[in-house]
């Protein structure tokens, strides 16, 4: 029963992701595109929850949906008028984009579907507890990630300063 419910939810999320992704790149109103992106991100978070990575799902929701999307919305509101539609894309450009996208999707999809390398079920190891995550993040042993963590933090600091430098009025 749980299995079936999981599958239903999975297909629901998949439908949301596919439809909203396509809508996000084809909508001519930029604010709507951002909204569709928000839905995609939420659905992605749903995937993570389904895969029992609850922490990652929470991170996805807070950082992506809560942080980045808000930035996007601010930027959109600063740079375009409400209700403004972007110019129609020239058919030539659209044709090239479609060709690249469809050809890529076809090759990758065909390759994926003709090769069987996935177990249909993952081992139900339950969710990762925070302690494991915390240790892995702060440890200095093999398969532990203190150094990347610190590097990321320095990167974020640099980004803060850089962002201020770039965006401030002169």
């Amino acid at each position: 029963m749980e299995q079936v419910a999981n599958q239903v939810i999975f297909f629901l999320l998949s439908a949301i992701i596919v439809v909203c992704s396509i809508m996000a790149v084809t909508s001519r109103r930029i604010l709507r595109a951002a909204t569709y992106l928000l839905f995609v991100l939420f659905a992605t978070a749903g995937y993570y929850f389904q895969l029992d990575y609850h922490f990652l799902g929470a991170v996805q929701v807070t950082i992506y949906a809560g942080g980045i999307l808000v930035l996007f919305v601010f930027a959109i509101l600063l740079t375009s008028k409400l209700g403004e539609k972007s110019d129609r894309i020239s058919s030539r450009k659209r044709a090239w984009g479609l060709l690249a996208a469809v050809l890529g999707a076809a090759i990758c999809g065909y390759t994926l579907l003709t090769h069987d390398f996935f177990p249909s079920q993952f081992a139900q190891g339950g969710e990762l507890d925070m302690k494991t995550v915390g240790h892995a993040l702060m440890g200095m042993d093999k398969y532990q990630y203190l150094l990347p963590f610190e590097a990321i933090s320095v990167l974020l600091l640099a980004c803060i300063i850089g962002g201020i430098m770039i965006a401030r009025k002169r």
Binding site: I17, S21, K93, A101, S120
Partner: peptide, 27 residues
């Protein structure tokens, strides 16, 4: 569960399409 990957492929190429066709930098 191959379908996770199929969905992500579709998502990726939707992104590709948007990347090469849109005019707006935010898009």
């Amino acid at each position: 569960m191959i379908y996770y990957v199929v969905v992500s492929t579709l998502m990726f190429f939707a992104g590709v399409y948007g990347f090469v066709t849109r005019h707006n930098l935010l898009a």
